[in-house]
Amino acid sequence: MKFSGITLKGRMIAFLAMLTIMVLAAETPAAAGRAEEPQQRYRIAVFIPGVTAGSPIYDMLARGAQRAADEFDHVTANIIEGGTNQGEWTGKISSIAAQGDHDLIVTSNPAMPEIVNEISQRFTTQKFIVMDGHLEGNPNIYTLRYDQYQQAYLAGYFAGLVTASSMDHSRSGLRIGLIAGQEYPDMNRSILPGYRDGAQDAAPGTAVDFRVVGNWYDASKGKELAREMISAGADVLLPISGGANYGVLEAAIEHNAYVIWYDTSGYYKAPGVVIGSTELLQDEATYMKVKAAVLGELPFGSAETVGVEEGFVRFVSDDPLFEAHVPEEVRNRMMERISQMQQ
């Protein structure tokens, strides 16, 4: 094959020339536009480390931030989905920070503080709010953490009650299941131990069957795993596996097991099968914190942890489907435990 060096070189030069022109063209109007704006606009970027769809916690994040923005004329919120690949998050948030036209970046995930902290070293004026994560001491970052141990504990306690109960599909094996999308730090450090401890407290001797789908979308595999778990004796399942949750739900419907929904209320998804739900009030929390940030009242640099006591983590006990499908005795014991925790 023949390569004519001159034409190639020529093309490269032309390409570079084009690049230069575009750099100049792009920089000027953007700068000019911002200068002319009469009132200082306040722009918020909401970075979703994943996708909103099917993920209540991110959905609530987006809704809460949007609600806060809607209360002010000069505030806009821009929702940006980063995809599920952790490796790409740093680059994507960096590029938002680099554009410099967002006053605040809001995100949510236990892994986010360390990423944001690192980005903050490079873009020193950018402010961040990280929900569901914890980091203290960076003056540009505010974090709010939910007590995941508590949430899992609530789920586990309820699962323990159910498996030990005489409900229709409860079996005497004292065995409950947890199906995770992947193994991740929060899962191993807080959720699984919380779930286990809760079950032990409710029904000592309860065993937890823990299995992993491997991703957050293979619902068929979720269904297969759940089926295996049920046939191995588990009668209450807690799926924390994104889209694969629906496979778990389907297996529970087909094979007469119970499901507890996590992060958001899920009773309506399968009445009589989803018999318990725990929820995080992420939308409310996000709304409050973003609003405070816009008003300049948020203490950046500090970190908060909230749980059952503060009301941001709760067991959904006021749903009619809960009352309809769970025997009074179990409900009462659950409510008893919750009120103990709230004190």
Partner: peptide
């Protein structure tokens, strides 16, 4: 790619 140094 040309909006800022970072993007470039």
């Amino acid at each position: 790619p040309f909006r800022n140094i970072y993007a470039f």
